[in-house]
Amino acid sequence: MKEIIDKISSYNLFNYLFPGIIFVILLREVTEYDLVQNNNFLGAFLYYFIGLVISRFGSLVIGEILQSKKLKFIKFADYKDFVFASDKDQKIELFSEINNMYRTLISLFCLLLLSKLYQAISNWLNISQNVSYILLIIVLIVLFVFSYRKQTGFVVKRVASRTEKK
Score class of each variant (00 low, 15 high):
R149P: 01
L114F: 08
F109K: 09
S128D: 03
V30F: 10
Y118I: 10
L136N: 13
D89S: 07
R162G: 13
V83Q: 04
F23K: 14
G63M: 01
M1N: 00
G153D: 11
D6T: 06
S10F: 15
L46S: 06
S96K: 14
L60H: 03
V139T: 06
L113I: 14
I50H: 05
L13G: 00
V36E: 06
N39T: 05
R28H: 14
R158K: 05
F49D: 10
K72R: 11
I22N: 02
F84D: 15
V145R: 08
W124K: 14
L125W: 10
T163G: 09
S161P: 01
N15L: 06
L46Y: 03
Y79H: 00
I62R: 05
A44M: 15
Y79M: 08
F18C: 05
V131H: 02
G51W: 08
L66N: 07
I137N: 00
V156W: 03
Q151D: 15
V30M: 08
W124C: 01
E64Q: 11
L113N: 13
L113T: 14
I21T: 05
S147C: 02
R162H: 04
R103A: 05
T152G: 03
S107H: 09
V159M: 03
A44Y: 14
T104W: 11
I134D: 04
F18A: 04
L135G: 05
F23E: 10
T163Q: 15
R28L: 13
V142C: 04
V30E: 01
G58P: 12
E29F: 04
F14Q: 04
D81K: 15
N99G: 11
N15H: 07
E32M: 14
N99I: 00
S122T: 11
L17C: 07
L140T: 09
G51M: 01
L26A: 09
I21K: 00
Y148R: 12
S115P: 03
F41N: 13
D81M: 12
Y118G: 04
V139D: 01
S122F: 14
L111R: 14
R28I: 10
N39I: 02
F146D: 09
V83F: 05
K150T: 01
E29A: 10
L52T: 07
K88V: 08
F73G: 01
F45H: 02
L125D: 00
P19L: 09
K72P: 03
L135Y: 12
V156C: 05
V36K: 12
S132H: 06
P19H: 11
V131M: 10
L112A: 00
S68Y: 11
V139I: 14
A160Q: 09
Q67P: 10
I54D: 05
F154H: 02
D78K: 04
N40C: 09
T152V: 11
V159R: 00
N130H: 12
N100D: 15
S132C: 01
Y33H: 03
K91P: 02
F146W: 05
I62V: 15
S132G: 01
G153V: 01
A85K: 12
F45Q: 01
L135C: 13
F76I: 04
L42Q: 14
N99L: 07
Y11S: 08
V139W: 00
L117V: 10
I141F: 09
R103D: 02
I121C: 07
N99E: 04
K75P: 08
